[in-house]
Write a protein that binds this DNA or RNA. Structure first.
Length: 231
DNA sequence: AAACCAGGCAACCGCGTACCA
DNA sequence: TTGGTACGCGGTTGCCTGGTT
């Protein structure tokens, strides 16, 4: 524990806690505009703000950042959250990278209030298991194929460099990268219905993309392929 | 009108990790 | 190599608000 509350929101060690005031927000924004993000523990020293570094960072990241999107999560975003949560679980910050303007905290809260309570149906669980199994098989097939293809063309150094590039791209822009190919791609088939079954359905339909060897993403990696590049 | 309740969300906490001296 | 510090992440808490009785 940091200390005992003296008056409302003030601890005996001088740090303030609880809801931020408009003045505190202004001070923090001013500070970040001047010095940039980071070095959060210096904020109190430089500005006189009685907030610890953690609190400042959180306030900035979750509320004050200018690129934050305000307003409700759209059905499209909701579907993205569902799909990525199916893939990555509670890795909220990873999921948030695929939703520009949304924070991990926001997505986490949204998930907890909208989906946590409803247990996935049997069908969903079966579909999920099938998806994961096929994903694994696909990965194995591709690794074999890639090794065979690459061996004759690339040196080992080039191969490593490419793999790293792919991984970095996928890490920086997970969903954008997956959905390359536009609205007609994997995400485009998502209807505006927001039921859980529908959302999962859009994910499992990706299986079909692979069946003909072409995929909706035409020439690009399908969602499954690209997800595999993360691991 | 008042009390109660549930949902939503901002903020806090603890832990793990990266970085640096 | 190690210890300290700062940062980032996920889980949890608690307040606020709107709806219901």
């Amino acid at each position: 524990m940091e200390g005992q509350l003296m008056s409302w929101g003030t601890l005996e060690n001088g740090w303030r806690k609880g809801p931020w005031t408009a003045q505190e927000d202004e001070i923090l924004i001013e500070h970040v505009n001047q010095h940039g993000e980071g070095r959060w523990n210096c904020v109190s020293k430089l500005t006189g703000l009685r907030r610890n570094g953690k609190s400042c960072r959180l306030r900035w990241v979750n509320y004050l950042r200018p690129d934050l999107k305000r307003g409700k999560i759209t059905p499209h975003e909701e579907n993205i959250i569902l799909e990525l949560h199916a893939l990555w679980g509670n890795r909220w910050s990873t999921i948030a990278r695929s939703l520009p303007g949304r924070t991990d905290n926001e997505i986490k809260n949204y998930w907890r209030t909208h989906f946590k309570k409803s247990k996935p149906s049997k069908n969903i669980e079966k579909a999920r298991a099938r998806f994961l199994r096929q994903q694994q098989e696909q990965q194995e097939r591709e690794e074999e194929q890639q090794q065979a293809d690459m061996r004759g063309i690339m040196t080992q150094v080039e191969e490593a460099a490419l793999a790293q590039d792919m991984q970095e791209m996928a890490y920086m822009y997970p969903l954008n990268y997956m959905l390359q190919g536009g609205e007609g791609g994997g995400g485009g088939s998502i209807s505006d219905g927001s039921s859980e079954e529908e959302a999962w359905g859009s994910l499992w339909n990706l299986d079909d993309i692979h069946d003909d060897g072409e995929g909706v993403c035409r020439g690009d990696l399908t969602m499954q392929d690209q997800v595999l590049t993360f691991y």
